[in-house]
Design a protein around this nucleic acid. Structure first.
Lengths: 151, 151
DNA sequence: GTGATCCTTCCAATGATGGGAAGGTCAAGT
DNA sequence: ACTTGACCTTCCCATCATTGGAAGGATCAC
């Protein structure tokens, strides 16, 4: 199977397959005489695994762990569960942040009459007020691996 | 005021101030004979405005719009309101995505006994199942400007 | 005057992905 | 057999916001 077919079958773009290979997330494949990468059904399986983990917001680094756990049939499911729950934590903190942002903006927009008059509490708040809340101020550095879920 | 003091006063790093200048978000400042950038209280005010908009998740591009609306007191507040509400939409879609991810992961983790046994539904789902849902599949390309809120 | 602390510009890296160019390869149609 | 078009290869560049660092000049406190 060529890289294009593997991409089609797995839902991971050819570009990304090469990238994953280059960073060592997947091993280097067998090549044809002409240098074409050749993929097996099993490789496609792995790629699909990766794509799904990606869809759940895992970073490539985390996925590397997941893949090794997946390959190691003896691994403790505890490790996987811990990773999943830690990731849920990150997601939930992120959700809370976004809800706070959205809430603040909605509140401001509700108090903006939206006509031609120059008064706008949104602008005024940005210009002079404290728009930030404790949680966003105190928020430690945390980030989701993927911004665009399906770019 | 030097860039360092302006950074301190506004909460925007000196690095970012130079960057914002380089991309035209803020105008080029006056310089001293030695080439040092000089900032006024008004500049700091603008920088603080920018930082707050950033905290609310606006992209630099959107902030450029907001800043020009802010400077132009004759503009209709409607524009600002429209921008804010459009941004709320983006935030809420993002929230829904993250909630779905977190929900899927929690569901999987609940069904994972988490002991030493190798069976783990999380891994199994990733390996063979369809983890994606309609909303994430259908999700159009949309992204939030900022991944890390306070990096 | 000297050392510490600023400031300057430039360059690189991050993470995950897309875009594209330049060139080689393959399969099918004429 | 030859062309055509679809594929493949590598390599470089761009994104977005931000940080880091190096090399060198300026300023400041002592």
């Amino acid at each position: 199977m060529n890289i294009g077919q593997a991409a089609e079958a797995s839902g991971v773009s050819a570009k990304m397959i090469r990238y994953y290979e280059s960073i060592g997330l997947i091993p280097k494949t067998v090549r044809t005489e002409a240098g074409y990468r050749v993929y097996s059904d099993n490789d496609v399986h792995t790629l699909r695994f990766i794509r799904r983990a990606r869809d759940l917001g895992f970073s490539v680094e985390q996925i590397a762990d997941l893949v090794s756990l997946w390959r190691d049939r003896e691994r403790a499911s505890m490790d996987v569960k811990r990773m999943a729950l830690a990731h849920v934590d990150v997601l939930e903190r992120k959700i809370a942040e976004l809800q706070e942002m959205a809430g603040t903006l909605k509140h401001l927009a509700n108090n903006c009459h939206g006509d031609g008059r120059p008064d706008c509490p949104i602008i005024e708040e940005l210009a002079s007020g404290e728009t930030r809340h404790a949680s966003s101020r105190a928020a430690p550095k945390f980030g989701l691996a993927k911004e665009r879920l399906r770019p």
